[in-house]
């Protein structure tokens, strides 16, 4: 696990929602935290290299650019989990894919510009794996607000 001191934690809690859209963003962050621009860059370099920060960039709102998304579940026998997960991962339309053991154990999200593409992918996966997939498209969105409270 990555070691975080209090300054790292403050940086991580800040840059999820308050990254300065400024000509010198790291300098601005440093001013807020009482450290130099160099130190911000050095710390972010380590946090990125070690995996605490995956990227700093835009979080795209799929709904606003059109298209459709869904959650799909499938019950896969234990010995086929890696094989089926890799078939699923091949599609760029798959953004998240997890093992969550339950009645269905592989759960993944699919986003595409049109519903037809979703059905096409599900048909292909069914043909490749011989498994039944349940398709649970979003009916209503109440919230998306990923924010980790790092303590």
């Amino acid at each position: 696990m990555i070691y975080l001191d209090d300054v790292d934690k403050t940086i991580l809690n800040t840059i999820q929602y308050d990254f300065p859209l400024d000509s010198r963003p790291y300098k601005k962050l440093g001013e807020r935290l009482g450290i130099s621009e160099d130190e911000v860059i050095r710390r972010l370099g380590r946090l990125h290299d070690e995996g605490a920060v995956r990227k700093i960039g835009p979080v795209i709102n799929r709904n606003s650019i059109g298209g459709t998304s869904t959650l799909v579940a499938v019950n896969v026998p234990d010995e086929r989990i890696d094989e089926v997960a890799s078939y699923i991962n091949e599609y760029t339309e798959v953004s998240h894919n997890y093992l969550r053991p339950d009645r269905y154990n592989i759960w993944f999200t699919l986003s595409a510009s049109e519903k037809g593409r979703i059905y096409e992918i599900l048909d292909e996966l069914k043909a490749k794996t011989g498994l039944e997939f349940i398709n649970l498209p979003t009916k209503r969105l109440f919230k998306i607000g990923v924010r980790f409270n790092i303590r």
Partner: peptide
């Protein structure tokens, strides 16, 4: 402002930091 991007900021590798 137009809602094309939800936010501009860091994506956290939450597992790597213990979440």
């Amino acid at each position: 402002d137009k809602g094309i991007i939800r936010r501009f900021g860091a994506s956290i590798g939450h597992r790597d930091i213990g979440i």
